[in-house]
């Protein structure tokens, strides 16, 4: 069902998301119905070579809903954008794959998550990753910047999904790949708008 959201509605949704994910930036443990941290990474089949050298403090911040790299590898030297990077574990996994010749950028709208991502980058020593504050509907990059755009558990949270997809199209190079792990609705959503907005990030 198409839902029309006003600017105020979108702001309410964003506030709810920011509040929930600033808390998750501390530790996501117990906040989600699925396993998070190292257990989540192992169950989802992330590359054991990447996980082996990942400090526990870094893996603990993982709260993704799937493994986007299951959709295909990132090749050496490619440029990658991680939309809604959170604590940045997927960005670091992409940095591991693309190697020192490649570049990875992670954007997130929650400052606490970006601090966590920056700390995680420091703990892992990857020099080919940058974390930036930004919105999925207004990406801070020139046209055709990336070979791969990935996103893990984020698109379901975006109010204006069409605008976000337009932005992804803009920053992807011709033939570039979009790899999404996400949640889709399979049951009934609350029929009233207020209910939908309050349930947005649960």
């Amino acid at each position: 069902m198409e839902l029309t959201l006003s600017g105020d509605d979108l702001e309410k949704i964003h506030e709810g998301i920011r509040a929930r994910y600033s808390k998750a930036a501390g530790s996501p443990e117990g906040m989600f119905r699925y396993p998070t941290g190292r257990k989540g990474l192992e169950l989802l089949g992330y590359d054991p070579d990447f996980l082996r050298n990942l400090p526990d403090e870094v893996s603990a911040s993982y709260c993704g809903v799937g493994n986007p790299f299951f959709l295909g590898p990132v090749e050496k030297g490619e440029t990658v954008l991680d939309i809604g990077c959170g604590g940045g574990v997927d960005s670091l996994a992409a940095a591991f794959m693309t190697g020192s010749e490649g570049r990875v950028a992670g954007v997130d709208m929650t400052p606490e998550m970006l601090h966590r991502a920056e700390r995680n980058r420091h703990l892992t020593g990857f020099g080919n990753v940058t974390f930036l504050e930004g919105s999925a509907t207004d990406l801070p990059f020139p046209d055709r910047s990336f070979h791969v755009v990935l996103s893990n558990g984020v698109f379901n949270l975006i109010g204006d999904k069409k605008a976000a997809l337009r932005e992804v199209r803009r920053v992807l190079r011709p033939g570039g790949r979009l790899m999404i792990a996400d949640q889709v609705l399979v049951g009934e959503a609350p029929s009233d708008k207020a209910g939908r907005i309050s349930q947005w990030h649960h």
Partner: peptide
């Protein structure tokens, strides 16, 4: 009421 999925494009 939601399912985790992998989508490629």
């Amino acid at each position: 009421v939601t399912k985790g999925v992998l989508i490629r494009a």
